[in-house]
Amino acid sequence: MNVPGNSPGNYLINAPTVVATGTVEIGEALGWFGALKYRYFGPRPLTEDGQIRSIGAGTLNARVGYRFDGGWKFQIDAFNVTNNRGDAISYGYGSFARSDFLGFPGYPGGSVGIMDRHFKPLDPPSVRVTLSGPMAVLESALLRPF
């Protein structure tokens, strides 16, 4: 039984037709720096027949920080700053309810269940703080002979 979303077709599953990214960075080797990065994945077919499609999703991430002498760096990253509620990943496949396994005749899903879009939403806005630098103390201890 062919259910819409489960029929053969000419679409490549999860292959987006539009992928775009753009980044703007400012700063020098030492001192303040910053960046904005936008990433977009367009809608894509989730089944071979193209009946079920994902939604497009774009995220905007930001970074600001300071580079010190000696290789140390402090930075703050903000992810999904516009709180886009799109899908991080989507799949199209058949789902079964508890009653599906009882084998009612004429059930529209048949043996494949009801085809639908299943997804994991994008992560909500979040922040990461990083302090990084050279590990000179550890490096000298590791290079010392035993």
Rank of each mutant, 00 (worst) to 15 (best):
R85L: 06
Q75N: 10
A97G: 14
H118Q: 14
D123Q: 09
P121H: 07
F68S: 09
M1P: 06
T17I: 04
Y38G: 11
I89H: 02
N84V: 01
D77G: 03
D116V: 03
N83I: 07
D77V: 01
D87C: 04
Y40H: 13
F33H: 13
P145V: 03
D116F: 00
Y66H: 12
F68Y: 15
A57P: 06
L143K: 13
P108K: 01
L143I: 02
G71N: 10
T130Y: 07
V112S: 13
W32V: 15
G92Y: 03
P105L: 01
R39P: 00
R67E: 05
G56S: 08
I52D: 01
L138Y: 09
Y11P: 00
T130H: 01
F68G: 11
Q51Y: 03
N84S: 15
S132E: 12
G27R: 13
T130R: 04
G70V: 06
P43M: 02
G5P: 13
Y107K: 10
V64N: 09
A88V: 00
G31K: 09
A78K: 10
P45W: 03
A29L: 12
N80L: 05
A141G: 02
A20S: 15
P45Q: 00
S54G: 05
D77E: 12
L122M: 12
Y40G: 07
R53N: 12
T82F: 14
F41S: 06
K73H: 08
V18A: 03
R128Q: 13
L143A: 11
S132Y: 08
K120R: 14
F104Q: 12
G92S: 02
K120E: 13
F146W: 09
T82Y: 05
E28Q: 15
E48N: 14
F104A: 15
A35S: 13
N83S: 13
D116S: 11
E28I: 00
I114R: 10
G56L: 04
G5N: 05
N10D: 14
G65P: 04
G109S: 06
E48C: 03
A15W: 06
I89Y: 04
F68E: 10
V3G: 03
R39F: 03
P121V: 06
S126D: 02
Y91R: 09
N84T: 14
G31I: 11
A29T: 09
T130G: 00
P134C: 08
Y66R: 09
K37F: 04
I13W: 01
L30A: 13
N10L: 10
G106S: 06
T59V: 15
G58I: 08
V81I: 15
G113I: 06
S95N: 01
A136G: 12
G27A: 04
V64R: 09
I55M: 02
M135N: 15
A78I: 06
L36F: 07
M1H: 11
A136S: 15
N83C: 04
P125H: 01
T82V: 07
S54A: 14
F33P: 05
N84C: 07
F79M: 15
V64D: 00
F119M: 07
D69M: 11
A141H: 11
G92C: 01
G34L: 02
M115Q: 13
H118M: 05
G110H: 02
V64Y: 01
